[in-house]
Amino acid sequence: MQQIFDLLRQWSHVLLFVVLEVVSGLLLFHFNHYQGSVYLTAANGLAAEVGGCYTGAESFFRLRENNDSLTQQNVRLMKENEALRQSLAEYAHKPSFTESTVKAKLAAFKQIPAVVVSNSVNSSHNYIVINRGSADGVKPEMGVVGGGGVVGIVYLTSRHHALVMPLINPKSSVSCRIRGMEYFGRLQWDGKDIRSARLDDIPRYAKLHEGMVIETSGYSSVFPPGIFVGRVTSIGNTKDGQSYSLGVKFGTDFAALRNVSILTTPYKAEIDTLLLHAAEGETDKE
């Protein structure tokens, strides 16, 4: 304590000098307008400068946080933008005659809209993955149609996705007929061109010409009758020469497939039951 007092006594003149200068400064800035205003302006400027520096430093240290936030916002906006663009494209899209006809034919059926999330067209066994699965009521062997007509048949389902076997898969076989005639055959893809397939077993006495419309026959529980498939582009003979083999150009462009609908056939269960009974009856007779 004594040392502190000694120290204060030793530097008392400095302490007094500082105190008196402060008092003089207060008097100066309080009673002299010019010096007061200059001081105030300078003090305000200094305060603003210090504030600016502080804000700048604070902003700098928050850059990482802001960057993360901006990235998140950017991703969200990009997603939103994509969704809006798709919606706009859907609204702006003018349906073709085929699309309108297919829609009209399917009006009585319950449809589940879906979007293609994966698509292959270059393989010999092509498959399509759509974003609807068993949770949405999609089951195997349901028909899938698009704006251009028939797309394929649901092959496998998971909870939220389904694998569709398109017409451009050699395993696919859809019963089709010629519009205006009752002749029907099986449409099969030969693995060559993704825009066309062959319709065999058309009797030779049928009067055919190129451009005729091929549509679903309705002889299966998968597709209702009359759904557009494609048009006849060539007329040829089968290998055995007993019937015609027609070249058919698909209405669906598989390389640019986006929005599709899954058809939930209401009578499929009934038809399957009847077919099962019929099969059982046949075995009993044997």
Binding site: S12, H13, L16, F17, L20, E21, V23, S24, G25, L26, L27, L28, F29, H30, F31, N32, Q35
Partner: peptide, 29 residues
Amino acid sequence: VISVLEGFLLGLCMDMSLNTPGMGAAAMT
């Protein structure tokens, strides 16, 4: 200490005459 105090008082007297409080006091201190 006395010298500094004297300086302050001298300056203050000058300020009273010139009506510039603090100016002379600060300089003289």
